[in-house]
Design a binder for these strands. Structure first.
Lengths: 260, 260
DNA sequence: CCGTAGCATCTACAGCGTAGAGCGATGGTG
DNA sequence: CACCATCGCTCTACGCTGTAGATGCTACGG
């Protein structure tokens, strides 16, 4: 996988975190002389958090069982007690993230529109804080058939349905509304992340040059947009979109008590 | 990677396609005695098409340089003349797909709304015919900063901008409209594919059972939807969504000739 | 004291992407 | 004709991956 850098020497995730100087694997003596860092018992949460850290810091490709194990000061195989698979571990990651998305806060007494609007912004903030996990968020569900997804990943769905339901949507309509809502959210996030350039200073040039590279007779409109692509305000764009969407839902709610 | 089946024996992609009985690698004699299948010269298109075939047939994980090479009757390393990287090969795949998405057909003299509506349905059809590529479609752009994307992948964008522009949208508004449009499209496809169950007969049970598994006091709304999740009409849902979206765009076009 | 169970580790295997060198045919130039 | 560069391809090898299976260590109930 792109080999990253080959053996430069000290890669942040290749060494345990807590004790800075300590041979991670001594082979012979199986931690008899106090395995330090390795002594803390693992549990699912610790593993998942470490995985998320690793992904946040170095991207999805950096998350291998070996590297994760190393970071926890444990043998890679130890992880399999808490995640069965690498795939399951990835599912765990999405769960860990979605679990932090609280759609209907307890003390929130605002309108359903207000709740959905706030939830959308929360979602954006949450996800932007862990951009590297986004691919998981959109691809994992494609291979896990809904009913079999981790509970934590279904809770937001349920909560949104609850909000919509108490707003007066019939079940079927609530489902449609949910799809529109979540589809929009995901679509927006993908859009925003595509626009995102890692290093603005350097990449402003890179982007312009990139677009400059386009044959100007084949891509007139696209090239004209170059300046606009550089100051993209995701927050504003989301707000604008969600407003339109909520208006649409409102209209639908007022007009037809039942559909399909 | 999930090990698939271990060595069962004849895996469809592990053997060359054309000559059914022939040791793929004889080692010693470098194809001196008429390398049959291996004699056809490769080119980028052949490689990409084979890759797409492989992915369509066996999923993304099955696409390895070695398996692809094997399928083409060539050494894996031969592919690197046409794709530099495995990543580049994946980019090539998305390009190959998006290149088939013709947004504004030459003979189409309908309204811009009509064009966008038709394009949306085309996109859906195209993508559903290659479901396994969808993850690439949504994740590859996240790691390639717009201006550096393969030209074929930018053409649809340009075409949509053209349609919007000739509809009267100012460049900035056209960009916003494009984002809403494409974002919606992607969101819908992801929604639809999540709903999709591989084997309806068997999975109808699986799905119901899956939902049945949910604690009924924590997921009342979701469980109520179980029956509805089973007859999902993607086409209709898309049509309905696109209609709303187009209405929104129309309104925006009529109200404000310029924005931001 | 001996099981017994749970956690962690060791070892090993098949597969992966790909760098680097090499090989045979082709085609242009002396 | 001989020569040599170039192209398409193959070979070999390295370091990495996920994970099956056996093995050990530690703690606890009898």
């Amino acid at each position: 996988m792109s080999n990253r850098k080959a053996s430069v020497d000290a890669d942040p995730a290749d060494t345990p975190i807590d004790p800075p100087a300590d041979p991670p694997r001594v082979a012979g003596s199986t931690g008899r002389g106090k395995g330090r860092q390795g002594d803390v018992r693992l549990n699912r949460d610790v593993v998942l958090r470490a995985a998320l850290d690793l992904v946040d810091a170095e991207g999805l490709e950096a998350l291998s069982m070996r590297r994760l194990g190393n970071r926890l000061g444990k043998d890679p195989m130890a992880l399999y007690r808490y995640a069965e698979n690498r795939d399951a571990l990835l599912d765990g990651l999405t769960e860990l993230l979605l679990d932090q998305w609280i759609v209907a806060k307890a003390d929130d007494a605002s309108s359903w529109q207000g709740q959905l609007r706030e939830a959308a912004h929360d979602f954006r903030a949450l996800v932007l804080a862990h951009r590297h996990v986004v691919p998981l968020l959109v691809t994992r569900p494609l291979s896990t058939p809904m009913g079999l997804r981790p509970l934590g990943a279904l809770r937001p769905l349920e909560q949104i349905l609850a909000v919509l339901s108490s707003a007066g949507f019939e079940p079927a309509d609530a489902l449609h509304a949910y799809r529109a809502y979540y589809g929009f959210l995901i679509g927006h996030i993908l859009n925003e992340l595509e626009e995102f350039v890692v290093n603005p200073d350097e990449d402003e040039l890179g982007l312009k040059l990139g677009l400059h590279r386009l044959p100007k007779k084949d891509f007139p409109h696209l090239r004209e947009l170059a300046p606009m692509l550089l100051n993209y305000d995701g927050e504003a764009e989301l707000e604008q979109g969600i407003t339109i969407l909520l208006q649409g839902l409102e209209a639908q709610l007022r007009s037809a008590p039942t559909t399909d």
